[in-house]
Write a protein that binds this DNA or RNA. Structure first.
Lengths: 192, 192, 192, 192
DNA sequence: TACTAATCGAGACGGTACGTCCCGTCTTTGG
DNA sequence: CCAAAGACGGGACGTACCGTCTCGATTAGTA
């Protein structure tokens, strides 16, 4: 099952890998994404700079590896029989994720970088965390809807509100959930 | 009427100012935001590096000054008696702005930077281009609605779709306009 | 008697000139020659930078103008009938000049600069402060000696001792005076 | 026998070190000490600026390292049974050193800088090239004399003559040697 | 029990942008 | 014509991080 040839040689140091992932997370919180450097990560991890470059190309890659799992977990809500509750729980999780979560801070930093760095954009496109988790909710509460359109309607308002720097307290997950459910129920459609 | 009389000293060079603003715009298109440097801007503008630093602190400030006016203009649509047309025109302008416009590329770069640079966030907060132009539309088609909530619903889906790197062709301004109008008309509200 | 045409126009500001000369002296003591800049001089003098450049080309020129008179005065000793006393008084003045005097610090700085700046070397060559004052002593105590050779023998040892950074306390003007007088009296010459 | 074991790390590049020392020497001759810059040295040596700063703090340090050995060699004269010849050869070497030698030009530049830069003064104090070489001569021709005093008498006159910018042709090593020997022989001393 | 081969740390290397400082000049207003 | 003010192009400063490159020292699996 093991991939890669492994013909002799010293195996990759797992402690080093873990230390780097931990360090990148720690630095994001302490100094912010912009001030985070490959050099700083290596030093905080107590690892040679060469070792970092051997396994990752950019700080974005490290940060993504360090936070993707957490992000997916935080945005996965247990199914609820009541669609309104289901959607509300998801939007509450999204609100927490975008404003208070550690993994969410990493996501915002990466999405910000993706606006002007195609490599980071490609990295994020490879694993659509927000889209996947939203689609899971959509397929439960509106299995027949256009999933892409529904995802945009579900995530969009809160995403815009928070990423454009508005006061997170002034947006209400329950209200958005109600609006979303009204929007995707066919009878509420206004025909052109 | 002008305050702050020019008490001595050589006046600021308008050609230099214009050259810097032009250079920053040119560089954004040619090399991208990340590869844009204060040094590069100064050299392309044919201006001393000191002169750039004298008037702006960061490339973000220059870029903002260079693009804010254009952005506001591009997102201002003429009123239309038909609300659907009015909103659709705005969303079309927004779509163009976020995907193809020069000023929009600047906005995306700045908003990206704002995710991990409080100074840039403050800069953008000072002039809410998207919010202001959206509010203008909202106050025409739904003067009684909560403007903040309506703005989020209007802009959010397209904003999310494009900034999260999805295919811009797969989102339809007219459809979003219809959905938006259905939602903000009081009679379509679902009461809690 | 006034030289220069003086055809109208505002006359040179004497307060400004004095302020610059004072400032250059003050700065030499406070920050040292190397850290002294034209900008700093102008600011301390409360004078426009342009005004400094209008009348002097370099800080060396200003410093020379500010200290030459004082230097000449400090190194001029009153004649004494006893040659030993005469020479000793001169060497004591020279010792004080090179180690403790304000004007002497300026001289050392300029002579240092002259080692690698021909312009400063030319400036110093224009007014031979040490040579002139030493020659005055020599012409009193040994009017028939070769004045150049005598000057070198008189000044050289102390000049070398102090400028090469040795402890000034370990050199004795009286001893040097005695040695000098022995050297320049013909009967002490050892024929080759 | 070598202490300081090489515990990891790429070893210092000897070619880089040599290139810098060569460059500093070349620049001193070509553009002079004042116009010599760390940037210029690095560029001429084909070496990164950081590499220069890693090993030296100032151009003075580099110049000192580049010229001290040569200086010591140039000022070391072979012993001669005839004291007059011995001293004359030394003074001739000193004359050449101060007026025509490459290493001597470096020494003059450094001694000049030392007049207003304590760091350079300390640098020169650490290796007393003139003093050491002169003391070697003194201990041969006048082992019983006060070496410090004798050094000042030996070097001083020529040192002053040349560093104060006088015509080097008008000073005669043989004459100075004769005068010096007459002075330091105990029997020629004038008692106080 | 060696040998092999990739990893690890350490740290120097050339390169480049940073933001600051001073240079000497120029261009205003105002005495 | 001079002076103060202050912006201008130029260029060196010393620092930081980039990504690459030797090094010696480890640390498995393989022979």
């Amino acid at each position: 099952m093991s991939q890669g040839r492994d013909r002799g040689g010293r195996p990759r140091s797992e402690p080093a890998r873990a230390a780097v992932l931990w360090a990148v997370d720690d630095l994001l919180a302490k100094v912010g994404y912009a001030a985070m450097t490959m050099k700083g990560i290596a030093e905080l991890a107590g690892v040679s700079r060469m070792t970092v470059y051997r396994w990752w190309s950019t700080k974005a890659e490290i940060l993504f590896e360090a936070s993707a799992l957490d992000a997916e977990e935080e945005l996965t809500v247990p199914p609820d029989d009541d669609p309104f509750e289901d959607v509300t729980r998801y939007l509450e999780a999204l609100h927490y994720f975008l404003t208070r979560s550690h993994a969410g801070a990493a996501y915002r930093a990466l999405l910000g970088e993706a606006q002007h760095d195609p490599a980071v954009a490609a990295l994020l496109a490879g694993r659509d965390i927000l889209g996947d988790t939203a689609r899971a909710v959509v397929s439960r509460v509106a299995p027949d809807a256009d999933h892409d359109r529904a995802t945009a309607l579900l995530i969009g308002p809160m995403f815009f509100w928070i990423l454009s720097g508005r006061d997170p307290a002034r947006i209400d997950p329950a209200d958005l959930a109600r609006t979303f459910l009204a929007q995707i129920s066919p009878d509420s459609r206004v025909d052109g």
